[in-house]
Design a protein around this nucleic acid. Sequence first.
DNA 1: TGATGATTGACAGTATACTTACAATATGGG
DNA 2: CCCATATTGTAAGTATACTGTCAATCATCA
Lengths: 169, 169
Amino acid sequence: MPSKSTPITMDAVYTAPGYLFRRMQQIAVSIFVEECSAFDLTPVQYAALVAIHTHPGIDATRLSAVIAFDRSTLGNVIERLESKALIERKPSREDKRVKLLHLTKAGAIVLRDIMSSVERAQVRMLQPLKPADRKTLLALLMQLVDLNNEASRVPLRAEDALEHLGKSN
Amino acid sequence: MPSKSTPITMDAVYTAPGYLFRRMQQIAVSIFVEECSAFDLTPVQYAALVAIHTHPGIDATRLSAVIAFDRSTLGNVIERLESKALIERKPSREDKRVKLLHLTKAGAIVLRDIMSSVERAQVRMLQPLKPADRKTLLALLMQLVDLNNEASRVPLRAEDALEHLGKSN
DNA sequence: TGATGATTGACAGTATACTTACAATATGGG
DNA sequence: CCCATATTGTAAGTATACTGTCAATCATCA
């Protein structure tokens, strides 16, 4: 008769989805930083640049919803991007609390130039798998992230980005 | 004739594997912490406890290889586990540089009791997928993490854990 | 209008996750 | 045996990633 409780071994860790997601995140960041070393941008800083490019004049709170990134941490990210002169922060006339975010010329150039490196990094992450498996994994991941959106502390709110347009138009 | 470069949109972020791995890591940690809130343990602290349980008397450097965790960061993790009296750190007699790690009684009890909560968390992470898809995703993830092992800055070296046994035997 | 409650950015605190550097100690070759 | 080299734990520095809290400001409704 088998015992009721599983023995505690490293396999309990190695085969757990949580461990695998942590490992893949480590690996993904490592590959990204390596491929993009010439630009001195982290994955999050890159995502922020893309979002500000797509939604010029967005504020920090909405930006955090658009890239599913904590509002507090984002403050530091914005600071670093500003100190690198890739973005600008201007106070809003309509709402004295908010600071509007825009890419600088330098920011737009960096974003344009980094794209091919980012693409290379994304390809490398899945490279070891067979092409069909890459597609399967990506599809399942997109599905899972979407269905688990509310489970994270900072759910993605892509539509939030459009709100700042409605104000003045 | 279509333009050569892809336009920069948020979709370039949302469909990138790097972004999806980051999101899943956020979600996985969030679920883990929620399910295990009664134990006040983070995923990494849990993994460290399991490894020390499996390899009593392991040292910090080998532990970092076994859970694929940076040696420097691990110092802080060990400190926190020690201050919670879940592990002990004793100097080795054979090598004055090394500090050997052991679970305390309290650590062993916490580890035994947290297992069912951890299991529940792992199940919840994949819950939204159909059972067959869960299996597929897990299999592909294990494959990818294994094949990408060397791409991360701190590759997993599971076999390193056995070395400390060979010394005294 | 005027009080109430929500939003915004900022700050402090905790915990990963990495980098480089360093002193103490071990180890192996000449 | 001695010296170059490697290992170990630690520390400082940077960057996520979250938790709170707070003051300033805004928006709403009695």
